[in-house]
Design a binder for these strands. Structure first.
Length: 449
RNA sequence: GCGGUUGUAGCUCAGUUGGUUAGAGUAGGCGUUUGUGGUGCGCUUGGUCGUGGGUUCGAGUCCCAUCAUCCGCCCCA
């Protein structure tokens, strides 16, 4: 009869305790987004599959949650469709899906609203996305993304603004972070100098996992791709060089001297760094590649310093975000805060507020119906004075209401019994100190404001 | 998509080479002379042992399948 309830795979509930923590992080990020001039938009959870498919590669398509057509979804299906396999079959029975990220819906939005938007358009978007991935630590099937993008401007000031935004947010969150910066152009320049321009993506993929697998594995992989040993040795020196950002740039300048694009990338990095007053947590890292292939210019990735947890922020410049929706030459730069991981990291480091901040200030309790009536009136008076309070709903032993206040973390309990009604005063108990005082209404308001 | 781990009370877990009515702590409920919570004490409600098969006189325990979980890989946030 009754089945044991459970969450759908890879999804979680957020109780009051979790929501206090989540809202804290969300509100700070949101505040800074707006402070930097980003405007909020939302797009539907459901998109046409034609919008979504083909934007994330074969593997991404595989991870899309598809929605079965309503009604008789089999009406156009023939036995032949089934024989042709599930890919062909699924096209006939599903035409909508849940959004996989916020970037593609944003590109659709920009393309559709191009005539109404003020360019450069700065938008932020904080919404859940869904992926039919296999759940793991820090990986869920439903999670929030938190994106800020500027489209329609090539200026490097945008990159610099995103760096400032990053610093402002984590400074307020009080989380110790680093921002790794590189440019796709520098990487392209390196491949150029190595004379392997056609192998750029395999190079980027190999380099990206250097921290994880070590140089030898990366080198072997590149050798197998046809890279030359002596050139790789030169590359190794560049990559393993430890020093200040300026020293790294000087170093690379000599390596990239013959590559126009490489030098352009270095200049970008120099410029963006020069915009930042505080460079203490900015690190130019040639090893940074980032998986997403649509980045074309500067790229960055944020990490927590006090805890190894993978990247918690990612972003970069991309050209042609909207070209697949019929709007070419729309360059943009964006940053995405991995809010689920930020919350996980901060929770482990105990940097998040506790549950009490969601409890109200006062609980009213009483002994009889007369007191109950009085409490409702008093509670509304307090509320109109901006004080949050609730009235214990059940007429039971008063002990119950004190236990309730204690468990919920309500600081004050106001007791209204026959004595209080006679005297016109309110007994207010402070649950932390255990002390109790008699106050009239205006004293009560003053006490709690 | 691949490899491994673990599923016993709401939660955290015991359960001895298969053997009677499956336990503890904690949480919940009630009480502790009733106008006062947190710590104490007493009593007490919770489990077809993830699900479905199989082996056996007998299965929480062994075997198979399945679902879920967590951890690696791929990929990603």
């Amino acid at each position: 009869m009754m089945q044991k309830p459970s969450n759908a795979r890879g999804t979680r509930d957020f109780g009051p305790k979790e929501m206090v923590k989540r809202n804290y992080v969300f509100s700070i990020i949101k505040k800074h987004f707006e402070r930097f001039g980003f405007q909020n938009i939302e797009t539907p959870s459901i998109e046409n599959l034609s919008t979504l498919m083909g934007k994330y590669g074969d593997e991404g398509d595989q991870l899309l949650f598809k929605i079965l057509n309503s009604g008789d979804f089999l009406k156009d299906v023939t036995p032949n469709d089934i024989d042709l396999g599930f890919k062909n079959f699924s096209q006939k029975i599903t035409e909508k899906g849940l959004r996989y990220d916020l970037t593609v819906p944003f590109a659709r939005f920009v393309s559709m609203n191009r005539s109404e938007l003020a360019f450069p358009f700065k938008r932020y978007q904080i919404q859940p996305v869904w992926r039919a991935d296999r759940p793991q630590k820090g990986r869920y099937r439903e999670f929030y993304q938190c994106d800020a993008d500027i489209v329609g401007s090539d200026s490097l000031i945008n990159e610099a603004e995103l760096v400032s935004l990053f610093q402002a947010i984590f400074s307020e969150l009080n989380l110790n972070v680093q921002l790794l910066i590189n440019s796709r152009k520098v990487l392209t320049g390196i491949v150029d100098v190595l004379g392997m321009m056609d192998k750029f993506s395999s190079f980027a993929i190999a380099l990206d996992k250097l921290d994880k697998v070590g140089w030898d594995v990366v080198q072997n992989e590149l050798l197998a791709q046809g890279f030359e040993t002596d050139k790789l040795n030169k590359l190794k020196v560049i990559i393993e060089f430890e020093g200040t950002n300026d020293q790294k740039i000087i170093n690379l300048k000599s390596f990239l001297a013959q590559s126009e694009i490489g030098m352009a990338g270095l200049k970008e990095i120099e410029d963006v760094l020069s915009f930042s007053a505080d460079q203490s947590n900015l690190i130019f890292d040639v090893k940074l590649a980032r998986g997403l292939s649509y980045y074309t210019g500067l790229i960055f990735e944020g990490k927590a310093v006090d805890l190894a947890f993978g990247s918690i922020v990612g972003g970069g410049r991309y050209d042609n975000l909207t070209s697949s929706f019929g709007l070419p030459n729309m360059s943009g730069v964006g940053i995405s805060f991995g809010i689920e991981r930020i919350i996980d990291v901060m929770d482990t480091l105990n940097l998040l507020p506790s549950v009490n901040s969601s409890a109200c200030q006062v609980l009213f309790t009483y002994f009889d119906l007369e007191g109950q009536l009085k409490c409702i009136g008093l509670a509304n008076s307090l509320r109109s004075n901006g004080i949050s309070c609730e009235v214990y709903p059940d007429l039971t032993k008063i002990k119950k209401s004190f236990e309730y206040a204690d468990k919920k973390g309500i600081r004050f309990v106001a007791v209204i019994g026959s004595e209080e009604i006679k005297s016109g005063l309110i007994s207010l108990k402070d649950m932390i100190s255990g002390t109790q005082e008699e106050l009239n209404l205006s004293e009560l308001v003053q006490r709690l404001s």
